[in-house]
Design a protein around this nucleic acid. Structure first.
Lengths: 344, 344
DNA sequence: TTGAAAGCGCTAACAG
DNA sequence: CTGTTAGCGCTTTCAA
């Protein structure tokens, strides 16, 4: 693409058209074109329309790389999530993306696979784009990751967890508390032989916190987990189903099971339906997240609804506010909603 | 951040460190630092280690904006999907992202909400980043969107559909054919009073193509849809459940129902379980996509598995190949797999 | 209201 | 093996 060759057919250059070329066609300087593009006040109506005609004729699309380099403002927002397979994170992303888009920012996503090492590498790679802000999942990161985020000197929001100290800002809820609430609910409901089925807790630290809170609640009632099944794979419907089957084989006398999340719990419910186990008569089931799937099953799932979409929105709002010089609260607990279904 | 003030504490600058500063500290020119960073051959071991020490000391992270502007290569890849709520697209994204990441490219996503107008706007906004390649869902776009993608002069892959003409390359499968296959399967299985339950077909053009193929297959057998329920909202488990209930109220004599996808079909199955309807004895159910949820339900869902993850990978591969000057096939039909479950 | 000059941080091309 | 020069496309600043 030789942009200095005046003999070329300009209308064919497409993505390669420059401000300079628009300016030439309009018979003005490139600064004037820039002013028109940014709706700057000091441009005569006549010049403006000449320029706009040239822009349209050439199909000019501004080059944000150059703009960002010149202004030191990228309008790029990094969102790092542990997974895209777990629908929870696409929902956070959707909330954030909606706000960012409306404000003229572009979200760039990274997927850490629940791996702090990989998250660290992602942060370094992303920093090379000099983003205007960051949303990362969770409060646990490698020391180097924390340091890079601090030194990036852009607003950082950690989401989906409030149990710990944020680098900059935090938007979410207490997983510890959520686990505790469900533990108390089951214990108060008279359940005594309570089990747990989860995915890899070593990686999903928020699920681990819920379990911790759950255990604390049981202890308050003089109880302890009667049986537990933790697989070394991501949580899923299938794992919930097979996990519950395996756990019941070992502990057929369980009267309640807490799952690491709704996918797992619905899988468990599917096992019960297939095996003819009376829910909640013989066995109570409880999940976490409040996914729609929990409402569509034959027995509505007892769970706790996390405000994922709203967390994404709020996180984005905080970043945008900070960019406007405001000082939003550094901890924003969005809470959650206990959903009493038909399974516990 | 006054980078020309030599009195500042360099180690504090964080994200603002420049090549220039590294070069100064190492006592070399910035070109030498650049060479070290790119593992260029012609650098003495001694210089290299001096430079690397300086990089480490300052916590230097290259500025890709500047690099991209200088080389006219952004290493940014745009992926535009209709939705993030439908797990199908995060999976495509995951496949593509994996490949892009391994090759040192960064995926940037856009969500069109199944809206061609919004897709067009997204494409224009994304083009301002001068991406190295594009993945977009489907073959249907506004004329202006098609034109912009053509003029972007970067490789473009349209995914998840083969029924039409691609702008540049296409990776996917025939939705028309998939619908036809399921129609034939049900008709050959002796089903005669067949219904359909779907979400908003006006927006999800690929679901509409499946239905079209399905109808063609029925016609081959002298049949026609006995009843249909199409809501004006996105497909979901809940919609599948309520949609089937509504359809059966109107047409209690149906002996089979085809759903726009697995979420809808599983929702339908949940209705049947709750209402005590014998599946597949009285009513056969069939979906599309081959989601894991279809395997976790009490009766494994009869469906067609689309290779979503693989499509994402392959699409990325084609773009990367093109960037290396290769000429990959412009149409890559990945096919699909018929999954005979227990519901039809 | 408009334009010219300088520079954002990096790299290609050439020179030494 | 290393440095110098010029420029990527845009915006900031200052001058006219």
């Amino acid at each position: 693409m030789n942009q200095n060759d005046p003999t070329q057919e300009l209308s064919d250059v497409g993505g390669g058209v420059t401000l300079q070329e628009v300016a030439q066609l309009a018979g003005v300087s490139s600064m004037t074109v820039s002013r028109v593009l940014h709706a700057h006040a000091n441009v005569s109506e006549q010049t403006r329309s000449k320029v706009q005609a040239a822009i349209a004729q050439l199909g000019y699309v501004p080059n944000r790389l150059a703009g960002a380099l010149a202004t030191a403002k990228t309008r790029l927002m990094v969102v790092i999530v542990p997974s895209l397979s777990n629908i929870v994170f696409p929902e956070v992303l959707r909330g954030a993306n909606q706000r960012f888009e409306a404000a003229g920012y572009q979200a760039v996503i990274g997927v850490s696979d629940y791996d702090q090492q990989k998250e660290e590498q992602l942060i370094e790679a992303m920093q090379s784009w000099r983003p205007s802000g960051w949303i990362v999942a969770g409060l646990e990161h490698t020391p180097r990751a924390r340091q890079m985020l601090r030194e990036a000197r852009s607003p950082v929001v950690e989401v989906m967890d409030m149990d710990g100290d944020p680098i900059d800002m935090a938007v979410g809820f207490s997983n510890l508390q959520a686990g505790r609430d469900m533990g108390r609910f089951l214990a108060r409901g008279g359940r005594r032989r309570i089990g747990y089925v989860g995915g890899h807790l070593d990686r999903d630290l928020r699920a681990a916190k819920r379990l911790q809170g759950f255990n604390e609640a049981l202890a308050e009632h003089g109880l302890a987990l009667h049986g537990q099944h933790s697989a070394d794979e991501p949580s899923s419907l299938l794992l919930g189903r097979t996990g519950l089957a395996a756990l019941l084989e070992q502990h057929p006398d369980l009267d309640a099971v807490y799952f690491s999340n709704d996918d797992m719990a619905v899988g468990g419910l599917m096992h019960c339906i297939a095996a003819g186990i009376d829910v909640p008569g013989k066995l109570a089931l409880a999940g976490f997240n409040g996914l729609q799937i929990g409402e569509a099953v034959p027995k509505r799932l007892t769970t706790i609804r996390s405000p994922r979409f709203e967390i994404g929105e709020r996180a984005a709002d905080h970043i945008l506010a900070r960019l406007q010089g405001k000082q939003p609260q550094s901890r924003d607990d969005m809470g959650y909603e206990f959903v009493t279904g038909q399974t516990a």
